[in-house]
Design a protein around this nucleic acid. Structure first.
Length: 233
DNA sequence: ATCCAGGACGCTC
DNA sequence: GAGCGTCATGGA
């Protein structure tokens, strides 16, 4: 089945309708977002074309909160490793046909982890953040599901009450965990792009309501070998 | 070996 | 509110 942006899915119709349609955000028209990029913005024009298949996944708030707390001051391979270790240490064991597999652990399960198990996930100083976040989410002091109904500002304010969650991580959780496309996470890569391509001033207001989609184009292209080749390093 | 990583926090000023 | 040093660990 061929879907917008040349995406091809190899699964049954039922599986697509019940799982992947929402997860891959197939009912959102990203072409309209890309069309908002003015031709005179050569960087973003290239970035949007390069990342035309990028979509904002509809992932779970708790999973996003945890993974982006872990992400701070880590590179992507190290993040993957830490998340995998966390799943092995605390995740529910899945009956995989071939290889051993673990689910992403719930807040209750993370809150119940022994300190040694948590320390075995190579989280460093983030271990204390993660434990606090798990206690908040497990106790209901932080109602991650209820916050789906909250407006953007209320959601942001609630997220930054969690230890280890600042503006960058909160924007990631809003964007990927709550599908708030206004989220615009500023990480080292985005700051680098804004500095090099926009002299420190990016026209964010032009993309009101879908800032996060534009951010993804900037991030994906800015990190790519294609960009380094285009700019000569 | 050295630098840096999808930052946040606590402290000054 | 803006400008610092610090934080633990591993990847490149």
């Amino acid at each position: 089945q061929i879907l917008p942006d040349g995406v091809a899915l190899h699964c049954s119709e039922v599986e697509y309708q019940t799982i992947w349609r929402e997860y891959f955000d197939m009912d959102t028209d990203y072409k309209t977002f890309r069309a908002a990029v003015p031709p005179e913005d050569a960087f973003l024009t290239r970035a949007a074309r390069y990342g035309c298949g990028v979509r904002i996944l509809q992932q779970e708030p708790w999973e996003m909160l945890v993974t982006f707390i872990i992400s701070q001051r880590k590179n992507i391979p190290a993040i993957k490793r830490a998340v995998a270790l966390l799943c092995e240490q605390a995740g529910e064991r899945l009956c995989g046909a071939e290889q051993l597999c673990f689910a992403f652990p719930s807040a209750v399960r993370v809150a119940a982890m022994r300190p040694e198990a948590l320390a075995a996930c190579s989280l460093g100083y983030r271990a204390a953040y993660l434990r606090a976040a798990a206690q908040m989410a497990a106790s209901g002091a932080l109602d991650l599901e209820g916050l789906r109904q909250a407006d953007d500002a209320t959601l942001f304010d609630a997220l930054v009450t969690v230890p280890g969650v600042g503006p960058k991580v909160a924007n990631c959780v809003m964007l990927f965990g709550y599908h708030r496309l206004c989220g615009f996470p500023r990480d080292v890569w985005i700051n680098r792009v804004i500095e090099q391509e926009y002299h420190g001033a990016f026209p964010l207001a032009r993309y009101a309501g879908f800032e996060g989609v534009i951010q993804q184009y900037m991030f994906f292209y800015g990190r790519s070998a294609a960009y380094r080749a285009d700019t000569g390093r």
